[in-house]
């Protein structure tokens, strides 16, 4: 096998590994999380993420709940979508990941 053929094969292998559900199992997530420093537990689902928050009028929460009821999506998904709409309006990079 030539060098380029070997490269093509290994690239396809890496690309093919991107989708299996097994790579996203709770077990593999847990094993990928580095040990937290003592007294600073961070939930695995929050690893590698930052918190963005704001104090808003209660009506925002009420309307948010109504959208949740209509779409069945969780708050994280809705905030992600809202922020990406904001980014698109201002021509800054939108983010594909939640």
């Amino acid at each position: 096998m030539s060098k380029v053929s070997a490269l093509q094969a290994s690239l396809e292998k890496t690309s093919g590994r991107a989708t299996p559900a097994a790579t996203h199992s709770p077990v593999s997530m847990a094993s990928a999380v580095p040990a937290a420093p003592s007294g600073a537990y961070k939930a695995p689902s929050r690893e590698g993420k930052v918190h963005i928050g704001a104090y808003l009028h209660p009506d925002f929460k009420r309307s948010l709940r109504l959208v949740q009821a209509q779409t069945g999506e969780d708050v994280q998904t809705l905030v992600t979508r809202a922020l990406n709409n904001l980014f698109a309006t201002h021509n800054v990079p939108v983010v594909d990941q939640e």
Binding site: V4, L7, Q8, L11, T14, S15, A18, T19, D96
Partner: peptide
């Protein structure tokens, strides 16, 4: 060249 379609996150 070798060409591969990849997900941006990978």
């Amino acid at each position: 060249p070798a060409v591969v379609s990849a997900q941006a996150s990978r």
